[in-house]
Simulated scan of single mutants.
Amino acid sequence: MEPLVDCVIEDDRWAAFGLEPLAESAARAALLHLGVVPEAFQIALLGCDDARIAVLNADFRGKPKPTNVLSWPAWDLSPETPGAAPERPDPAPGGEIDGLGDIAIAWETCEREAAEQGKPLSDHVTHLIVHGTLHLLGYDHETEADAALMEGHEVAILATLGLSDPY
């Protein structure tokens, strides 16, 4: 069976941390919670540092500074109405695996945020992988209604993994 998450590790701290199994578990929990078959999709995940994510953030969002996580969905599944659920991705015909999109996560920002929030790095990274996966599935937090829906799913997904409400 193919892994759901295909990790590309640019910063060795992510490999030592164990990003691959953590990301697999978090992304799988997110898809299962939303009724999406994990075996039908794959997510590309880049484990990088702040310098790399700052370049990506500048290139794709016009914000030349580090951030914790970025995502690039393969499809626009976002709803027309704020607070409405996005469309679900359809599995490819013939059982082929479809790319759901790409996520990048930055070591220094994640480490700093976890310390500031007084939580284990693994809990914070799990939350960010769930968050990024929801973005790939069309969820967003641009309006209060969208944020409430997305955060509600995050809390529920993290609870299935034994983690407390990050908000």
Rank of each mutant, 00 (worst) to 15 (best):
E2D: 14
E2L: 12
P3Y: 08
L4S: 03
V8I: 15
I9K: 02
R13S: 11
R13G: 01
A15S: 08
G18P: 04
G18V: 13
L19Q: 05
E20D: 09
A23K: 00
A23I: 04
E24R: 01
S25P: 00
S25H: 08
A27F: 03
A29M: 10
A30D: 06
L31R: 01
L31D: 01
L32D: 05
L32T: 05
H33N: 08
H33A: 12
H33V: 03
L34T: 01
P38G: 09
F41H: 06
Q42T: 13
I43L: 11
A44F: 12
A44Q: 14
L45W: 03
L46P: 00
C48Y: 12
D50K: 00
A54K: 11
N57G: 06
N57V: 06
A58L: 06
A58R: 14
A58H: 15
F60H: 14
F60T: 08
G62L: 15
P64W: 15
P66S: 15
T67R: 14
V69A: 10
S71T: 02
W75L: 15
D76T: 14
D76E: 12
S78M: 07
E80S: 10
E80Q: 10
G83L: 07
A85W: 07
R88W: 01
P89I: 14
P89H: 10
P93N: 07
P93W: 13
G94Y: 11
G95Y: 01
G95T: 08
E96G: 11
G99P: 10
D102T: 11
D102N: 11
I103Y: 00
I105K: 04
W107D: 03
T109P: 00
R112E: 14
E113C: 11
E116K: 15
G118K: 09
P120T: 13
S122F: 02
H124C: 01
H127M: 13
H127F: 06
I129G: 02
V130Q: 04
L134R: 02
L134Y: 03
L136Y: 05
D140E: 05
E142R: 08
T143Y: 05
D146L: 03
A148I: 05
A148H: 05
L149F: 03
M150L: 10
H153M: 02
H153S: 05
V155G: 05
A156C: 04
L158T: 09
A159I: 12
S164Y: 07
S164N: 11
S164H: 14
Y167T: 14
